[in-house]
């Protein structure tokens, strides 16, 4: 088992490297940082533009592979280069990764956890009212794109704030400046409410649908009946035997759902004014900032593969057959 996981890890590192290179080459060939200097008054002389861009390894006049070589030799040493304004990409990334991970972590844990529980609950109560309500609402939620969901949440929160006559829910930025200690912590939590909901709802709907189907498959099987026949309480039998078995497929879907979560985080960050990696992707593409785009892509690839790795681990932990073979 350990050997298998090690091999997977090695393949994953290789895949991140290839994906990052691909992203860099795509970005370097389709983005043009010269645009940023166009239309300035007084106009910037061509030589100055070239000199500035050369300094940051961003000049499209240099051959693509030469730029790529410079970029790789930096990345190998852990340096992602500079933005078109000359700031260090590493520093900016260090600031932003934390913001994004906070959103993604909460989104993943709440989304998959609640989704699995709700799906299992719906399966146990198949065809009852609660099952139908869960089924229909998850179906509707899956038809609502994240950016529509986020904007509707803003509308709802504004209505609530107006009704209450005070700012109950704040939704712009990560926190309000000028607070310290517990106040700041509480303020951060308040700011988290809407982004978390907008990120989680889709995940919850997705997992609950999968989990319900898998749970229904398992509930009719002999080992669940045996578990109850040998005297386990219904709840214990359901949790220890049925839920665990039914979790395996949901765990394999985890890697897939994470990609959607990552894209969703881009919208959430952008709409709610968080300065994370997702928002940076949009901004840096608009500014033709090749090195920043490459850094965000590397981060995204690493996240997807870590999610895939975690889902392998979860399957191995849940499914004894995987551990043996």
């Amino acid at each position: 088992m350990g050997k298998y996981l090690l091999r997977r890890l090695a393949i994953n590192v290789l895949l991140v490297a290839i994906a990052a290179s691909l992203a860099y080459l795509l970005a370097a060939s389709s983005l043009n940082p010269q645009v940023n200097f166009k239309g300035r008054n007084p106009p910037v002389p061509e030589a100055t533009i070239d000199k500035t861009l050369d300094q940051y390894n961003l000049n499209p006049k240099k051959p693509l592979l030469e730029r790529y070589g410079t970029w790789v030799s930096g990345v190998v040493k852990g340096d992602f280069g500079q933005t078109w304004e000359g700031d260090s990409v590493n520093e900016e990334m260090g600031r932003r990764v934390g913001v994004s991970l906070r959103l993604l972590l909460i989104g993943t844990i709440l989304g998959s956890g609640l989704g699995v529980l709700i799906g299992a609950f719906a399966a146990v109560r198949q065809y009852k009212l609660s099952d139908r309500v869960i089924g229909v609402s998850s179906f509707v939620i899956m038809a609502v794109p994240v950016f529509v969901m986020a904007t509707m949440l803003i509308l709802a929160a504004t209505g609530l704030n107006n009704a209450a006559g005070s700012k109950l829910i704040e939704f712009v930025g990560e926190y309000s400046p000028g607070l310290t200690g517990w106040d700041q912590f509480a303020n951060r939590l308040v700011h988290l409410i809407l982004p978390t909901i907008s990120l989680c709802l889709g995940q919850i709907a997705f997992y609950s649908r999968i989990q319900r189907n898998m749970m229904l498959d398992v509930l009719g099987q002999d080992f669940v009946r045996t578990a109850m026949a040998k005297g386990l309480r219904r709840r214990t039998a359901l949790f220890r035997h049925a839920l665990r078995t039914a979790l395996i497929p949901a765990a394999t879907y985890f890697a897939f759902a994470f990609g959607t979560l990552l894209t969703g985080a881009t919208f959430t960050e952008k709409i709610f004014g968080w300065h994370g990696m997702g928002a940076w992707l949009v901004d840096s593409i608009n500014q033709h900032d090749v090195n920043a785009v490459a850094a965000v892509s590397t981060f995204a690839a690493a996240c997807v593969l870590v999610a895939g790795f975690l889902s392998d681990l979860a399957v191995a932990a849940l499914d004894p057959r995987v551990r043996v073979s």
Binding site: L15, V16, I18, A19, L22, A23, L26, A27, S30, L31, N32, G259, L262, T263, T266, L281, V282, I285, H288, V293, V296, S297, A300, A301, V304, L305
Partner: peptide
């Protein structure tokens, strides 16, 4: 297929979009 799944398609198309 594996390689294309590593990078979310949203990201790839976004990078190519200036074209």
């Amino acid at each position: 297929v594996d390689l294309l799944l590593v990078l979310p398609s949203f990201l790839i198309i976004a990078i190519l979009s200036p074209r």
